[in-house]
Computed example of a mutant assay.
Amino acid sequence: MRKEDCFYLGKIVSKFSFKGEVLVKLDTDEPALYENMESVFLALGRNLVPFFIEQSSLHKSDLLRIKFEEVDTEADAEAIMKTELYLPLEFLPKLSGNKFYFHEVIGFSIEDHQKGSIGTITAINDSTAQALFEVDRDGTEILIPMNDHFILKVDRENQKIVMDLPEGLIDLYID
């Protein structure tokens, strides 16, 4: 399994018991969706390795307590500490309406209802307080806030996001 075919689910953040249990910080708004998984992929070195789950349960809202098969001691758990967990993309719940996964909209075009075509989404920058679309417009990078109030429509069929951008925002980048 390749990372490109998977999505990041979370990271092992601590050991939980002397029996090899670990706590995983999930990167999701709906942790309950992942409570009864049979297996996950752990990023070990440059590989994704399947690990089978004996038992799991939610622990304090966004943490998942997991007991993996063949991880039976504190030393075993220590060996996988800080490891990232992945699942195949087909396990992502389907979204509809104006909700989307960041990886899903890479390559979509951005259209402003006033200015028309703006460019193509090349990446999502979520390292700032406000996530940003990184948009390429004929070699010029345009940063557009991913604000729900600006997004009018996510058109998956035509791979396009229609937005109502604040006046002057695009003019900062183009003349």
Rank of each mutant, 00 (worst) to 15 (best):
A79G: 09
L64K: 05
V71S: 04
N36A: 05
L169E: 03
I80W: 04
V135H: 02
A129E: 11
A32K: 12
G139K: 07
D72A: 10
L152R: 13
S39T: 05
I106Q: 02
K160I: 04
R156K: 14
I121R: 00
I53A: 04
A43N: 14
I110P: 00
I124H: 01
E38A: 11
A43M: 14
D112N: 12
I53E: 04
E84G: 03
A75Y: 07
T128P: 00
I66Y: 02
S56W: 03
R46S: 14
S56M: 06
V49A: 04
L85Q: 03
K11R: 15
Q114W: 05
A32I: 14
I53N: 03
A129R: 13
F150P: 01
S14A: 15
T28L: 12
G10E: 08
I53T: 02
K15C: 09
I151G: 04
K94S: 12
D164R: 15
F18L: 10
G107L: 05
F7N: 02
F108C: 05
D155W: 06
I12E: 11
F52T: 09
K99R: 13
N125Y: 08
V162A: 09
F91Q: 09
A131D: 10
E111S: 10
K153L: 09
V135L: 05
M1E: 07
S117H: 13
E90L: 06
F102G: 02
F7V: 03
V71N: 04
Q114M: 14
Q159F: 05
E157D: 12
I124D: 02
F150M: 08
E78S: 13
E4C: 00
